[in-house]
Design a protein around this nucleic acid. Structure first.
Lengths: 183, 183
DNA sequence: ATTTCATGAGACAATTATGTCTCGTTTGAT
DNA sequence: ATCAAACGAGACATAATTGTCTCATGAAAT
């Protein structure tokens, strides 16, 4: 079993998310140090930088997917689902943005998965347009672009301590729907 | 005079902006190659990686500042100025985002300059609130955060060829003011 | 034609990042 | 108390990046 000591692995993953978001050039030594762990230990858990980033990407996908599934579970409409997902992902802004930045240099399997999620999202947006959440004249690509950027904007407010999680979440959601309801 | 051959230097700067935005880990060799130039030539123009980035930051500041000044020159109101600046900066999204990412690791002089610009921006936002462009209850920090992110969102639409410059500019501005007018 | 100057190519050293290995210590379970 | 697994520290080798230097070439100016 690999779950004997989850703490060290988690600390490394958390440190990696944090440091690589701030500075994609952060060295493995930096990451290990920030996790309070020897450099060799990082290599015991991950097969080098590439392997580490693979794990981060996978975890980011899984966490956001899980949050989205849970959030949309008991939603009575597509619009409500989008709102719940949006608010559930903001605390994971870390992961969410990491995915956005890293999309270029990952393998094909992951690219397909992301593309698939993208397509599913687009369908939900279509429904939300019908429900009146978004202006139907707006291109889905712009709606999704704005969706992602509002999540990141909220996360930045939280990270720099210019707002609490609740404040940032509410500001971002209101700005999003006001902005995209349009006309 | 340093202006004997602006082409090589410009090509290097342009390549650097392009590559470093896509991948902050891009090597100087990559940048030189992308500029169609030998690696040694890059070192003839810039004092290493650090010096290159300094030049990029300075140029980004100057270009955006110049665009902002020019755009606000003949504006009849603070709101109009914000709109013109917004639309003038989008084609420089390249530079604008580079500044946002790099803000951590630059020297004090530049930090002060950015802080100063930030303060000036905040004052303009206050006036725009009075003019009714923004909901006065919204924190300036959120308005500016959104402003920056809408510029980047528009730039992303253009870069990925999902919209023309004019389309992206219009979408972003409409989304911004609808989103922040509030209530 | 001659001179000048930016350049490309490549050799070279120094630095940094990465990956592997060993050894002694700590921790937790039995 | 004993034992095994996880760990930190550090030595070591390799690779990648960076910075400097030299030399030959080619283009533009004179």
């Amino acid at each position: 079993m690999k779950s004997i000591r989850p703490t060290t692995e988690n600390a490394l993953i958390e440190a990696a998310f944090s440091l690589l978001n701030q500075n994609p050039k952060a060295s493995l030594a930096d990451i290990a140090a920030h996790a309070g762990v020897g450099r060799a230990t990082l290599h015991r858990y991950f097969s080098g930088r590439e392997g580490l980033i693979q794990v981060l990407v996978l975890q980011a996908i899984n966490e956001t997917e899980a949050a989205a599934d849970k959030a949309s579970k008991h939603s009575e409409s597509y619009s409500a689902a989008l709102e719940h997902i949006f608010k559930a992902i903001i605390p994971l802004g870390n992961r969410h943005w990491f995915l956005a930045q890293e999309h270029g240099q990952t393998n094909q399997k992951i690219k397909r998965k992301l593309k698939q999620q993208n397509k599913a999202m687009s369908k939900v947006v279509n429904h939300a347009k019908i429900e009146g959440l978004f202006n139907p004249e707006l291109p889905n690509s712009w709606i999704m672009q704005t969706y992602d950027h509002m999540i990141h904007a909220a996360w930045e407010m939280i990270r720099t301590e210019q707002a609490t999680i609740n404040q940032a979440t509410e500001l971002a959601w209101q700005t999003l729907i006001n902005g995209l309801q349009g006309k």
